[in-house]
Write a protein that binds this DNA or RNA. Sequence first.
DNA 1: CGCATTTACGAACGATCGTGCTATTTTATC
DNA 2: GATAAAATAGCACGATCGTTCGTAAATGCG
Lengths: 195, 195
Amino acid sequence: MKGRRTRQSILERAVDLASIEGLEGLTIGGLADDLDMSKSGLFAHFGSKEELQLATVEAAAERYIREIYTPALKQPRGFPRLLAICESWLSYIRRGVFPGGCFFAAASFEFDSRPGPVQDRVRRLMDDWIGALEKAVRMAQEEGHLRTDVDPSQLAFELNALFFGANFAFYLRNDQQAIQRARQAVEARLEALRV
Amino acid sequence: MKGRRTRQSILERAVDLASIEGLEGLTIGGLADDLDMSKSGLFAHFGSKEELQLATVEAAAERYIREIYTPALKQPRGFPRLLAICESWLSYIRRGVFPGGCFFAAASFEFDSRPGPVQDRVRRLMDDWIGALEKAVRMAQEEGHLRTDVDPSQLAFELNALFFGANFAFYLRNDQQAIQRARQAVEARLEALRV
DNA sequence: CGCATTTACGAACGATCGTGCTATTTTATC
DNA sequence: GATAAAATAGCACGATCGTTCGTAAATGCG
């Protein structure tokens, strides 16, 4: 089936564009022009703009997991893996995996007050992501690598905040030191909790 | 002049709406309907959508400074004022000063890849804000309240990241503990640097 | 009050939005 | 290679976008 392949290439481009213009700024006609295809031809793959947005979020999630989470899982569970996730996140910003900055940071702030299926999906994915961070912390504690008097949710909150802060400083403020700053804060915090 | 008064009330509403729908999602017709006035009547106050966006950013900045910065300046310079700025920020999120969450967090992520006058203005304001944080840190050091081996830019980066993280967790994830988590992280970090 | 100025409105423009139809082209199967 | 199915294109729709313009109403000053 050629349809599936076309659909996938549409979504890859949609993810890139949405990271720049936002999921609402994403336009069916504009996306079609960008891909040199007809509006109706593209539209037929999704049936509605909302379905396109949901599919775009899904494609972004796959890229996100592939670029950040999966590589870090190669590190042994515990402190090394936790650190690898953090480094992976910062590298993902530096490499510009999404041309407009972290897709999910942008989508989180775009949809935090726009109820509907897209918000629901973004929220669930971010819950999963924070959950993955918490799990990595908990495993580091279970392995005896990390002090147990710190709440995994608390540490996951702080690490994620530093990631978003790095994205903000790097993409809006063009602060070339942003990633180094985030790394320093992450490592200082983790090092202090190391047993 | 009645025009100025009308313009101001338009902008107050525009700020609220833009914090929910975004500055691009803000619509002249929609804003006019919301205020029970004509599209062209409202339009005449600004002359273009971009001017409306710029004026909205300006109005949001005034509210931001009035709600966060000015109150904190009543505290004596040094550690008390630095802590007051942080508490003021968290309180500003809890109180819902902007109905859709922090206007500037949203605008920062919306415009971080949209070059133009609006991005320029948002960037400058955020530079000013981070600069104000740095200044508060530096004053705390000069007063002998804070260790001098920490880079003010580094600490300002970390504090701002925690603020954005709190906004994210509070508004998208509906995490009622978000503000408490941010406060804990802020206070732990500042307390550790206190002399 | 009268009058000049400011402010607001109504209607309309071309462009673009998402979406629905029908026709044509391309693909996959026998 | 014929044929059924799938994929894409073309065209048009109503709605809404930002914007313009001419006119009416409201305002403020003497």
